[in-house]
Nucleic acid binder design. Structure first.
Lengths: 149, 149
DNA sequence: GACTATTCCTTGCTCGAACAACTAATTTCT
DNA sequence: AGAAATTAGTTGTTCGAGCAAGGAATAGTC
């Protein structure tokens, strides 16, 4: 059954991160599917729900996305009536984004999906294990973050 | 400074996994860029280099991809002369994929990039820390894997 | 032998991600 | 005040990812 075949022997950590991320994202996508949202959109909406209206550039920074991705994602959310965009009067470059009232309808479902995702990901682990994993993830993040352009 | 703003408070583990994965993938993409490959393609090639010619469906399974993604990725690799595809005679449904001789030219660069990725990701950590992280990733994976469709 | 799965692959669609190039508005510097 | 640099968004292109639908070859069944 050797699961050690193929490219897995090279860079075991990177490969493990890759696989965990893929499984996690896949699961998130499936849970989110019931809300009608696509993976990534829910982060944008939750940020808007929690932090209120804000500029695109701040929104992109808040969820670690970039400007082009955010612009297109917001265009789709706006098309679907979940988001409203208006040009700022004080600075005609910026576009202010806010969640619509219609978007609030799916907020409970989105938050339930996130809770379910969290539960399925680490719910079966002991608090000690969870704490260890949280710390390790912080460690990895602090290692990788300075390399981000 | 509160970095605890926004959607980060909901599902902290999921969010952390998300961020680590994003940073890691971004770094991998940048390192791989010098080889001329796109993120994902290097896994395919390394599997072919290590395990030799094989069917598309096995290749997809080996790197946890799916058939459509693999088909299109291989079409691009074939277009770029890194991969050769031939229909099997014993079973006319299957396409056998093999790495071309030309692809071997970038193998050293790809493997160097993976080593560099691994080094940047966990190189600065103690063996104990690395072991702990490896174990935690296995834990997460064994938690998530049964949920995969 | 024919009818029905099943397997392998492809194509169409929508989406996120990253890079480059571009417009427009604002700030900074001289 | 005018030129240069910076900032905010958009658009184009390429790619990976996932879902759905379909075609072609094979295996299984009656």
């Amino acid at each position: 059954m050797s699961e050690t075949a193929g490219a897995a022997g090279v860079g075991p950590m990177s490969h493990a991160i890759f696989r965990v991320a893929r499984l996690h994202k896949s699961l998130a996508g499936r849970l989110l599917r019931e809300t009608g949202l696509h993976p990534g959109q829910e982060l944008t909406l939750m940020t808007l729900w929690v932090d209120g209206p804000q500029r695109q550039v701040d929104l992109a920074a808040a969820i670690d996305s970039d400007a082009p991705t955010m612009a297109r994602s917001l265009a789709r959310l706006e098309r679907d009536g979940l988001v409203r965009r208006t040009r700022s009067d004080s600075d005609r470059r910026v576009v202010l984004v806010e969640a619509t009232e219609a978007s609030l309808a799916c907020r409970p479902k989105v938050e339930a999906a996130w809770q379910e995702l969290e539960r399925l990901t680490v719910g079966s682990l002991s608090p000690q294990q969870q704490a260890g994993i949280a710390q390790d993830l912080r460690l990895l993040e602090s290692n990788l973050e300075p390399l981000d352009p």
